[in-house]
Design a protein around this nucleic acid. Sequence first.
DNA 1: CACCAGGCAAGTA
DNA 2: TACTTGCATGGT
Length: 228
Amino acid sequence: MTRCLPQENWGSAWVIEKNRLVDIFDRLHSFFGPQYWWPGETPFEIVVGAILTQNTNWGNVCKAITNLKKGGLLSFEALLALPVENLALYIRPSGYYNVKARRLKNLLLMIEGRYQGELDLLLQDEMMTGRENLLSVQGIGPETADSILLYGGNHPIFVVDTYTHRVFSRHNLLADESDYTSIQEYFMRMLPADSSLFNEYHALIVRLGKAFCKKNRPLCEQCPLNGL
DNA sequence: CACCAGGCAAGTA
DNA sequence: TACTTGCATGGT
């Protein structure tokens, strides 16, 4: 793996040094192996999944996406033409189906208005411009936007989620009160801007969280991060 | 039965 | 600004 960027002055939020972050990645990669994210066959499917998986188990998202595929609706044009009330019925298993149907529609309309209805133009746009446009959509917050940029567009941006916060704060590697932006800046200052690395790192954190870092549970004995 | 899952926005004080 | 609440299905 490539080495890290030079370190700068750190704020008090930075609890650990960069080499430890590389060690953690190496441990996770050795322990779990490659994760092959994002589970999705096309950029459009990835984008849809990114919204449907908000605060939701991935298994439920799969059911919703299967429904769309069966209906021949998993394309930009088909979803844009589908009334939001109908869309909600197809994605029902993913939960929050009314708000998510509206959020998907909001995104499609943004792409229609600013990128001539071409998802690829959004994904190929300059990273931070694309990010701003994604964040302007009601229902797309930082994690969803960054997931789309990283996993849909192969942009080197680090995705932070509840597992990232939980795993690193539980191991005393990050302050508990760290917010999305500070955690993201932390990873991105410590690591080289490599989309493949960010892809695998985030997926490994989620894998670890599911296996060994459950909510409202004490630190797990079998966790490969113990004894850092 | 309770609790949780790869968030986000809106409301309240 | 800092909390709290609504959104909702399906698995353990």
